[in-house]
């Protein structure tokens, strides 16, 4: 069982999920969520994640997700309650909604921290948990850059924010007791952003030349390009001890995937959503490789505390995730 650590040879992730199987899981999830007015959606989410994790193999062993649905439900209800009070207060007592918004903003670093901890802690491979150690102040710093510097610099600060966010995330993530490391610089992110900006000009030109008909395909092409640039930047600069990662997504491949997915989902009125999810997972996962030049490596588990899911939903909303 140590294929992964055979010196020099890259190991691919494997995905064993099937569209027909996931369609049935998806529709039962949806049905029970609707019948229970959304209560079941927390269980549905766990079931979905367990299916995808349990169908993703690395070196013959699957990943595992252990999130507790009750914790997720509590998190969801809290988010929903805050949102409802906020939108009601907007009409009736605008001052209260302002206060509420400020309170949520102040709690944001804490919420994001909890979300990342919850997600990481409930992800396992080979019975060893992932973890997240980032501090509230670090998260606060990154958010401050996003909130203040990005708008003030008219977006010129955005690549800096992306680099900071990724570094915060990767460097504080660990597998067992081993921390991930990140070597991309802010300069790398600016170079990536330059490429994407050029692609954006191409997207505008293409959309205008085709009189708007090409808007959707060109948008998907731009999105695929941006995703490939950022994913390569992120993964090729991530290491776990001596293990290196590589991401083999291509612009053409990702574009084809998204285009066919969008077409299928639209033509089937959403019924092919599970099929699209499986195709996306297969494409993205099976093009991820790991390589360990030094030969056998072994990771030890770390002791850690339990974390509730209060921040889980908010964290997803804000895009703080592994982003695979």
């Amino acid at each position: 069982m140590s294929e992964l650590y055979r010196p020099g040879e890259p190991v691919k992730l494997q995905f064993t999920g099937s569209a027909s199987e996931y369609f049935r899981i998806w529709i039962v999830n949806l049905c029970l969520s609707v019948l229970t007015l959304g209560i079941y959606s927390a269980w549905a989410k766990v079931r979905r994640k367990r299916y995808f994790y349990g169908s993703t193999l690395l070196d013959g062993a699957a990943f595992e997700y252990t999130g507790n649905p009750v914790a997720i439900l509590k998190g969801r209800l809290l988010v929903l309650a805050v949102f409802t009070v906020y939108s009601l207060a907007q009409h009736v007592v605008p001052l209260l909604s302002l206060v509420l918004a400020l309170v949520v903003l102040a709690l944001l670093p804490w919420i994001i921290q909890r979300a990342l901890q919850f997600n990481a802690r409930n992800s396992l491979h080979r019975n060893v948990r992932f973890g997240f150690n980032g501090g509230k102040m670090q998260i606060f710093g990154v958010l401050l850059v996003a909130a203040l510097l990005v708008p003030v610099t008219l977006g010129i600060g955005y690549p800096w924010y992306l680099a900071m966010k990724r570094r915060l995330f990767v460097e504080n993530s660990r597998y067992g007791s081993q921390r991930f490391a990140f070597s991309a610089t802010t300069g790398d992110y600016y170079r990536g952003a330059m490429k994407i900006s050029l692609a954006f000009v191409g997207f505008l030109a293409g959309s205008i030349v085709t009189l708007g008909i090409g808007l959707l395909p060109f948008y998907l092409l731009l999105r695929a390009y941006a995703e490939v640039v950022l994913a390569r930047l992120a993964w090729r600069n991530t290491t776990l001890a001596e293990i290196r990662f590589d991401c083999g997504w291509t612009v053409g491949g990702l574009f084809g995937l998204y285009f066919v997915n969008a077409l299928g989902v639209m033509l089937s009125l959403g019924l092919l959503v599970p099929w699209a999810a499986i195709r996306t997972a297969r494409y993205k996962l099976e093009r991820m490789t790991l390589q360990s030049p030094q030969g056998p490596a072994k990771f030890l588990a770390a002791a850690a505390d339990d974390v509730g899911a209060v921040g889980d939903e908010a964290g997803e909303l804000l895009g703080f995730d592994f982003g695979l």
Binding site: S33, L37, G38, S41, A42, K45, F83, V265, G270
Partner: peptide, 22 residues
């Protein structure tokens, strides 16, 4: 309108990325 939107978004928690659109 707001209740229906919230309800659908809540029930369709399983759709993730598609929810905003759908």
């Amino acid at each position: 309108n707001s209740a229906a939107a919230v309800l659908i978004a809540f029930m369709a928690g399983d759709l993730t990325s598609l929810t905003s659109l759908a």
